[in-house]
Design a protein around this nucleic acid. Sequence first.
DNA 1: CTGAAAGCGCTTACAG
DNA 2: CTGAAAGCGCTTACAG
Lengths: 336, 336
Amino acid sequence: MEQSNEKKLTISDVAEALGVSKTTVSRAISGKGRIGKNTRERVLAYIQEHNYKPNAMAKGLAQLKTYNIGVMLPEDYTVVDLPFFQTCLIGIEETAVSMDYDILLTMSRESDCTQLVRMVENHKVDGVVLMRTFTKDIHIEYLKSQAIPFVTVGSTNYQDVIQVDNDHRSACRELISILLMKKLSHIGLIGGIESHVVTQNRLQGYIDAHDQVGVPVNQDIIFVNVQKEIMIERAVEKLMQEQVDCIVCLDDAVCMHVLNKLRKEEVAVPNQMKVASFYDSSILENNLPSITSLSFNARELGTVACKTLMEIIEGHTVKQRTLLGYEVTLKESTML
Amino acid sequence: MEQSNEKKLTISDVAEALGVSKTTVSRAISGKGRIGKNTRERVLAYIQEHNYKPNAMAKGLAQLKTYNIGVMLPEDYTVVDLPFFQTCLIGIEETAVSMDYDILLTMSRESDCTQLVRMVENHKVDGVVLMRTFTKDIHIEYLKSQAIPFVTVGSTNYQDVIQVDNDHRSACRELISILLMKKLSHIGLIGGIESHVVTQNRLQGYIDAHDQVGVPVNQDIIFVNVQKEIMIERAVEKLMQEQVDCIVCLDDAVCMHVLNKLRKEEVAVPNQMKVASFYDSSILENNLPSITSLSFNARELGTVACKTLMEIIEGHTVKQRTLLGYEVTLKESTML
DNA sequence: CTGAAAGCGCTTACAG
DNA sequence: CTGAAAGCGCTTACAG
């Protein structure tokens, strides 16, 4: 391919070759400061031809910027939400790259923020995006204490935190409302991790929907923090005893197990039991019957989160909370 | 939390406060060069107390290093191999961090290496790890042309490329050998993407095993490049016509579909048909019957790849090819 | 054992 | 419109 034996060019090399000053070269590249049209074009042409690329570190040091953003990816993933994070990450990366930023990746658990601290203390990033939030969130607490720009993907109750999220509460309210309108007045809920803010929002949406039509909420048919198969099966059994009309699952992994359990018990979906899920991932996409669910655009979420962060870094003011849309996709599993 | 209103300390601040030179402070931190024990401890204590952290960019510029490694994550993931990459990434990150490096993440497709080029040209990384290889691999070609340290996770046929991989060929040979020893002489193969080097290695292992016992390989029962459900179902039908004893799947997503298809056709596993998979991910972990498969340690793969890269970056010579182990886990799906 | 000075490759007031 | 010079925060020969 290319010849790579030539040493890397520096701005001085370019300046010397062209008989101009480094200042001029710098200005031609950045577009900042007054510079003659001819001069600029001459510089640009030379740079193009000789494939000169500025050293990002030197630039960063001079401007006290890094042109990196830190992205915090949850380490304790599950098969279900991983594709979500990956897609969201693609959105973040695209946006970052388009603004000439790179992504410094770090992984962490709910209770450990040493990686994050390290990244920030070493001055390696200009800002960070947190890909998940917790009700008690040490990452947010740390970032706030450091006065470094950051945005969260997902909602939080901490004050003055810039956040981007899908409107899970409304989405959930709408799905449940539709189900209630179908005269399914006994809707069970399974799944979700209580310490995740998103779970709280969804529960709130569930309550909202019930309040709207005056149907009382029955705590006995809500099962949070059940993730393992056995727990889920037990929950399904209880829901059957309680004679619910419909089971709504907080995520698709849970839904998968619910469907398996119902199959084992020979309960037909949707005839004897309706089923819906709060998220549509590929694991359910070929299920028979097809499953009613909410769907969100993870990539857009990443894009918006990253754009927002860039705005903050560049000193602009931004909306404190951006809520993105959702879709309710009604399929066979909730047909009357 | 901490008070963050104080400006960030620099090495000059520390030097001044202690009445020593910047040189001395620098030496105390890095441990390089002669320095008095007392002096060093005094500096270290001060640094500790005032929470001074060197600016990584400045350090990098002075040493012409970035203390970043680029990691190339495939963008065109599937639900199946994503957990593998994520786990591998954890291994890479842990190792990098332990050597005080950070990870610059970039995503790419088989045919597009603009992100990689950008990262390298901007001097943002000291080396890169490629998380996937292709038989014709433009990323490898580019990296070779730039003479920048890099290692691949996964094997490649390109010359002089440092690579870390599981021994897929041997693993596959062993699994197939065991099946052949069980008198299953008609073993069908489904899945895999032909342009992935790993697929080639596995096919080779399949052939090796047959050669060992002198059973001829029948090309009619090998179906590569079938990923979609319909394609898989059709392949299964053909394999049934060919009266194979056993179906080996190149990955778990394929295996899932194969199992569903067999269920539909009311073919009992393992009684009427044995089934095995080349990878054990969580999507199959609760299947009944349990599925015989190969298993690899993705995290270790990441760790070793990253360690190897660090060695190269630091100028040490390393083994050209490192092959990591595997396990064959025999379960119900291949019981006679 | 310690320090003054030059240098890494950029940017940016300031002066002309 | 252009340039000389100082500076970003470190490291590292070189000299003492």
